[in-house]
Simulated assay, not measured.
Amino acid sequence: MLVQGIKSRPTYRGIAIEPHAKRHIIALEGEGALALTEQRQALTPEILSRCEVLYVPRSSRGQDHDLALAALGADVFWQAPTIATLLFRLKASLTNATMGTRLYISGTEGFIGQAMQIALDLGMDFNSIPTEHRGSLARRVQCVHCKGITENVTVSPFQCSHCGLSLLVRDHYSRRLAAFQGVNIDAEEPGTAPDPEELFS
């Protein structure tokens, strides 16, 4: 039921630490921690002395990613209780960042989008920010009718949590809103929406 080939659909090329950066700010959510810990061999003491790792746990299949991240020995390791708290800290870190600072983001699409939004608002070019998708495929979706945003959408169509309309989740993505777009699927004949299909688990 998805429309294929939409150019705004994000792509995630993966994270590779840039050894010549003067400072590294690494924002991670849940299984996004693996994008960093799997590069242990490239993380020299010199690089780690210039790293600020911001992490928020999520359902991580019982793995202690926080312990693995702390064990890396980065200059700063900070664990947030919520995504909103991490994003607040990320904004402060980027606001005070100097030339030569590199940002990396890994986690679910919703997390990547929100963290990227902060960076873009501060004038960073999205092409210069390495991202890596890890974890759930659940989407952050904006209803194009009421403008409400629903987090962790795994099915399409789904009922908007704000206005109650049955929404088809499109691959069209708004970088400004950090959300996919949901459109009313039964606008012409209310009540005829097909059964929800699990597409983004």
Results as ranks from 00 to 15, higher is better:
118 I>S: 04
119 A>N: 00
119 A>W: 02
119 A>Q: 01
119 A>M: 01
121 D>L: 10
122 L>G: 04
123 G>P: 00
123 G>K: 00
124 M>I: 07
124 M>G: 02
124 M>V: 03
124 M>R: 14
124 M>N: 06
124 M>W: 15
125 D>K: 04
125 D>A: 05
126 F>A: 12
126 F>M: 11
128 S>P: 07
129 I>A: 04
129 I>N: 02
131 T>E: 06
132 E>T: 14
132 E>F: 13
132 E>H: 09
132 E>V: 14
133 H>D: 13
133 H>W: 15
133 H>P: 12
134 R>Y: 14
135 G>N: 09
136 S>K: 08
136 S>A: 11
138 A>H: 09
139 R>T: 05
139 R>W: 06
140 R>L: 13
140 R>A: 05
141 V>E: 07
141 V>S: 05
141 V>H: 02
142 Q>L: 10
142 Q>H: 10
142 Q>I: 15
143 C>R: 05
143 C>H: 07
144 V>S: 14
144 V>R: 13
145 H>N: 14
145 H>Y: 13
146 C>P: 09
146 C>M: 12
146 C>T: 08
147 K>L: 11
149 I>L: 08
149 I>Y: 04
150 T>H: 05
150 T>S: 14
151 E>D: 12
151 E>V: 06
152 N>K: 08
153 V>F: 01
153 V>Y: 00
153 V>H: 01
153 V>C: 01
153 V>A: 03
154 T>M: 13
154 T>P: 10
154 T>K: 13
155 V>Q: 13
155 V>S: 10
156 S>N: 06
156 S>Y: 05
156 S>L: 03
156 S>E: 02
157 P>N: 07
157 P>H: 00
158 F>Y: 08
158 F>S: 00
158 F>A: 01
158 F>L: 01
158 F>D: 00
161 S>A: 13
163 C>W: 03
163 C>Y: 02
164 G>Q: 08
165 L>Q: 12
165 L>A: 15
165 L>C: 09
166 S>I: 05
166 S>A: 12
166 S>D: 12
167 L>R: 00
167 L>K: 01
